[in-house]
Computed example of a mutant assay.
Amino acid sequence: MDQLSAGVPVAIHLETHIKQDQDVSDYSLDVDGQLVQVGTNMYLRYLEPNQETGEQVPVTMKFTPNGEIHLTRNAEAELRLHFVSGKRVTARYQTPYGVMPIETVTPYLEADFKERPFSGNIKIDYLLYAGEQLVGNYKIRLHFTA
């Protein structure tokens, strides 16, 4: 895994399932990205097309050795989600109008990495809250291969 410090190109397949009130939507994406190791953390970076504007939105997933995952989307409004299995944690949503306090509750979190070929499967089920109000129920399924 020494080559990871320089960055390794990866093919990414992402599926997201979103349930907000009675609305359910599914989204899938196939993009190229890069996996980089910095210290003991691994970072998966890719560009995601904004469905409304078509602009490319930088997305970073940070994987820590203790199993936590941080997700950052740097669009007009910056979203920073933090996933810890079985816990409610503070996240951040920076809008052009100010910071909106949000929290995630992650009942299911799995990150499985393989060496040959280098690949990973990420599964995150989480609830997103704004204050005590449930915003939605989300499932992320991400697979990448070098």
Score class of each variant (00 low, 15 high):
Asp2Leu: 10
Gln3Met: 13
Gln3Ser: 13
Leu4Ala: 09
Leu4Trp: 09
Ala6Glu: 13
Gly7Ser: 08
Val8Asn: 01
Ala11Cys: 05
Ala11Met: 06
Ala11Val: 04
Ile12Phe: 10
Ile12Ala: 06
His13Thr: 12
His17Thr: 11
Ile18Lys: 11
Gln22Cys: 04
Asp23Gln: 13
Asp23Lys: 12
Val24Cys: 02
Val24Pro: 04
Ser25Pro: 01
Tyr27Lys: 00
Leu29Lys: 01
Leu29Cys: 09
Leu29Thr: 03
Leu29Tyr: 06
Asp30Val: 08
Asp32Lys: 06
Gly33Val: 05
Gln34Tyr: 00
Gln34Arg: 13
Gln34Met: 12
Gln34Asn: 10
Leu35Ile: 14
Leu35Met: 14
Leu35Ser: 04
Gln37Ile: 00
Val38Arg: 14
Val38Lys: 15
Val38Asp: 14
Gly39His: 10
Gly39Ala: 07
Tyr43Phe: 15
Tyr43Gln: 11
Tyr43Cys: 01
Leu44His: 05
Leu44Gln: 05
Arg45Met: 09
Pro49Asn: 07
Asn50Thr: 01
Glu52Arg: 07
Glu52Phe: 14
Thr53Glu: 00
Thr53Gly: 06
Gly54Tyr: 02
Glu55Thr: 09
Val57Met: 07
Pro58Ile: 07
Pro58Cys: 02
Thr60Cys: 13
Thr60Leu: 10
Met61Gly: 04
Phe63Lys: 05
Phe63Met: 03
Thr64Pro: 03
Thr64Ala: 15
Pro65Asp: 05
Asn66Gln: 15
Glu68Ile: 01
Ile69His: 04
Ile69Val: 15
His70Ile: 13
Leu71Trp: 14
Leu71Glu: 08
Thr72Pro: 00
Thr72Asn: 10
Glu76Trp: 02
Ala77Gln: 06
Glu78Asn: 11
Leu79Ser: 14
Leu79Pro: 03
Leu79Phe: 05
Arg80His: 15
Arg80Thr: 12
Arg80Gln: 15
Phe83Glu: 08
Val84Gly: 08
Val84Tyr: 10
Arg88Phe: 03
Arg88Trp: 01
Ala91Gly: 15
Ala91Pro: 08
Ala91His: 07
Arg92Ile: 12
Thr95Asp: 02
Thr95Lys: 06
Pro96Glu: 07
Pro96Cys: 08
Gly98Met: 11
Gly98Trp: 03
Val99Phe: 00
Met100Pro: 00
Pro101Trp: 10
Glu103Thr: 11
Glu103Gln: 15
Glu103Tyr: 06
Val105Tyr: 14
Leu109Pro: 05
Leu109Ser: 10
Leu109Arg: 07
Glu110Tyr: 09
Ala111Met: 08
Ala111Tyr: 14
Lys114Val: 11
Arg116Glu: 14
Gly120Ala: 09
Ile122Asp: 03
Lys123Gly: 11
Ile124Lys: 07
Ile124Met: 08
Ile124Trp: 08
Ile124Tyr: 11
Tyr126Met: 11
Tyr126Ile: 13
Tyr129Arg: 06
Gly131Lys: 11
Gly131Met: 12
Gly131Glu: 14
Gly131Trp: 12
Glu132Met: 02
Glu132Val: 09
Gln133Trp: 03
Gln133Cys: 01
Leu134Cys: 11
Gly136Ala: 04
Gly136Ser: 02
Gly136Lys: 04
Asn137His: 09
Tyr138Gly: 02
Lys139Val: 07
Ile140His: 04
Leu142Thr: 02
Phe144Asp: 02
